[in-house]
Design a protein around this nucleic acid. Structure first.
Length: 231
DNA sequence: TCATTAAGTATGC
DNA sequence: GCATACTTAATGA
């Protein structure tokens, strides 16, 4: 296996404070792997044997309700750690991770987690920062689900994806990974029909432009207004 | 206001 | 040509 380049990690928050030799040591223990779109990387409830860093691509983090339907909890973008059950004091994964687009990830056995946290300045603080940020995001989505009307929830979900993965194009800001109406309904607790109707209506209003699995937000400010965000 | 049912069209391997 | 993605209308909780 070819050696991984150190520049893969140097700019990422959990590793940015580390020296070259330290990063070298971490990389030498990492296993890189590519995942096709739709591939499950690990499943909810499985023993957490490894933790991961996403280098390229996008992931959906999915939980199954007791009723049996899937909920998309959040997305993971490049540069983020995931599958970090040890940071949550857990020995099994609390959710499944599915590649939303073709993705590339590094992983390490969980037995390395304690030494990573202890040895490497900034690793622990940064991981707990991201854990905190994600819990906050989930909380926000939950209260939103309970209190806001469907159109606001869908607008907020689209904006969240745009904020995480948006890239500018001539037309507007596009979501950088494939998303279906069904996916969006799984994020917002509604049906794909309702999402389809909303996107059609927004498209007629010039707020978005969408083709299959692909959404461009042409008027983000108007979506923000619909979402009813503060300000 | 929204889910459900149902019945269609469009798209891409 | 088939499965999947998407659209739309109608109905009713």
């Amino acid at each position: 296996m070819p050696k991984l380049d150190e520049t893969l990690l140097t700019d990422l928050p959990p590793f940015s404070r580390l020296s070259r030799p330290e990063i070298r040591a971490i990389l030498d223990e990492a296993t890189p792997r590519r995942f096709d779109e739709g591939t499950e990387i690990f499943r909810e409830g499985q023993p957490a044997e490894r933790f991961y860093l996403l280098l390229d691509g996008y992931l959906r983090v999915v939980r199954t309700t007791p009723a049996g339907d899937q909920i998309i909890v959040l997305h993971i973008s490049p540069g983020q750690l995931f599958g970090i059950a040890p940071a949550l004091q857990r020995t099994s994964y609390p959710a499944s991770a599915v590649a939303a687009a073709e993705s590339l990830a590094l992983s390490w056995p969980v037995r390395l987690w304690p030494s990573f946290s202890a040895k490497y300045e900034g690793f622990a603080t940064e991981t707990y920062r991201t854990v905190g940020a994600r819990m906050g995001e989930i909380q926000e989505t939950l209260t939103e689900m309970a209190t806001q009307a469907v159109e606001k929830r869908v607008a907020a979900a689209v904006l969240r994806m745009v904020n995480q993965s948006g890239r500018k194009t001539a037309e507007g800001i596009e979501i950088a990974f494939p998303v279906t109406r069904q996916n969006i309904s799984d994020m917002t607790g509604t049906t794909l029909h309702t999402v389809s109707r909303l996107l059609s209506a927004w498209e007629k209003d010039g707020i978005v432009r969408s083709t299959r699995k692909h959404i461009v937000v042409t008027a983000p400010h108007r979506l923000v207004l619909i979402s009813g965000a503060a300000g």
